[in-house]
Design a binder for these strands. Structure first.
Lengths: 230, 230
DNA sequence: AAGTGGTCTAGACCACGTT
DNA sequence: ACGTGGTCTAGACCACTTC
């Protein structure tokens, strides 16, 4: 075991910020100075501070140095699990039901958002996910068969599109939006709730490079909450 | 510039996963082997793989080695800015109005959640945040004056509690919950929307060590969406 | 017992941004 | 121009986990 760990340095830095030894907005010593003070290598200081910078507690810029964030932008990490695992983590039995599966011409609003050719066709899926036979999530998904190669032959009755895509199509990135919406009549029927009641909605658009793979709207019934820690 | 960067290694690793050279669930070579292959130091491989593991793309365990995640749990990072900055980032003028400010005995449900003494008192604040004079956010907050020392004398008319706390009280962590709720009559009056309409709600409880600092419920009107990337 | 990742060191060079 | 963080190296020891 070495004498000084990067975690110990992080703790000490946080303690000094908490004690106001280092005020918000103020510069803290350079890596070299801290390495000398703590009697460790600069690389150790670097790792400690780099990770703190990733959480938004401090801000670092070459030449300008490192300073305590004046108005820290807290960053929370959300885990986005496969729905089956999320249900099973709650101790329930997972099942899903494909309500609709059709190939259609891409709707106009998706041609722009997904950067598709004007005559592109998409696979349109509607799926109800169940936890112990109770509606857990109503999913309305469009899949680009050109990027999600093999989706047409996927056994989507036994593996959800969600999970099939995650396992088979390497995704480079995506945009996620969280919001609240009133239940449409279709949402209400699928989830067995009243039309107009407040649903938690996730919209997600995912990419493989510059090509869109899938756009999905997830509607969760009242009572669902997404939780995380900072 | 060195010959091999950790970013280049990440790209190559991702490419191999995408090409299925390394299948989901399969072991990939050890750090030492990759260092030899790429002709770089093991520390460089370590940094490349460590960061990929943080995103959930690969999984690492001592002795067991590194493998490609079979069902990757995507991780998204949410930024939680101060409301004023969020409004200003949209090009609007920020203003807030304290609707209520009272010291009260802690409600029973918060005594448990915030780990308070039975006779604890809390500062109860209700604040409306405005963007260009339109309601942007209705905030219902409880503050523990024992941990948020100085809050009683804070000029909460000119600086929001949100911002005052962020600047003055060092926070060690917290729990955040996102959900949808129908607007209560009070929400509706504050936000100028219909009672019962779908609101996006954030509940946040923050701690300084083992002591709770504040519990807040943020209610956003219809149309608000929280966005992030993966 | 042995193999793998986790971390630290001491030194070096470099990119970047401020001055 | 120059100071700061960003990164890489080569080597070392250690912690954890599986065998």
């Amino acid at each position: 075991m070495s004498r000084v760990t990067y975690r110990a340095i992080q703790q000490e830095v946080l303690a000094r910020i908490r004690r106001k030894t280092w005020q918000p907005g103020a510069l803290i010593p350079t890596e070299a100075a801290l390495a000398a003070e703590f009697g460790c290598a600069r690389a150790t200081i670097n790792r400690a501070l780099r990770e703190l910078a990733e959480t938004g507690i401090i801000e670092r810029r070459r030449k300008a140095g490192t300073r305590v964030s004046a108005t820290p932008v807290r960053k929370a990490t959300l885990e986005i699990p496969v729905t089956r695992l999320e249900v099973e983590a709650r101790g329930a039995t997972y099942r899903h039901k494909v309500l609709e599966r059709r190939e259609i011409p891409a709707p106009a609003h998706l041609i722009a958002r997904m950067n598709l050719a004007a005559n592109a066709r998409l696979l349109h899926l509607k799926t109800l996910h169940l936890a112990d036979a109770h509606p857990f999530l109503f999913e309305d998904r469009f899949i680009n068969p050109l990027t999600a190669t093999g989706i047409k032959d996927a056994p989507l009755e036994s593996i959800s599109a969600n999970e099939w895509l995650v396992r088979n199509i390497p995704i480079s990135g995506g945009d996620i939006t969280f919001l609240a919406e009133p239940a449409t009549p279709e949402d209400a029927a699928a989830l067995d709730v009243a039309t107009g009641c407040a649903l938690f909605i996730i919209n997600r658009l995912t990419w493989a490079g510059i090509e869109a793979v899938t756009q999905v709207r997830l509607a969760y019934p009242p009572g669902y909450a997404m939780t995380t820690k900072i």
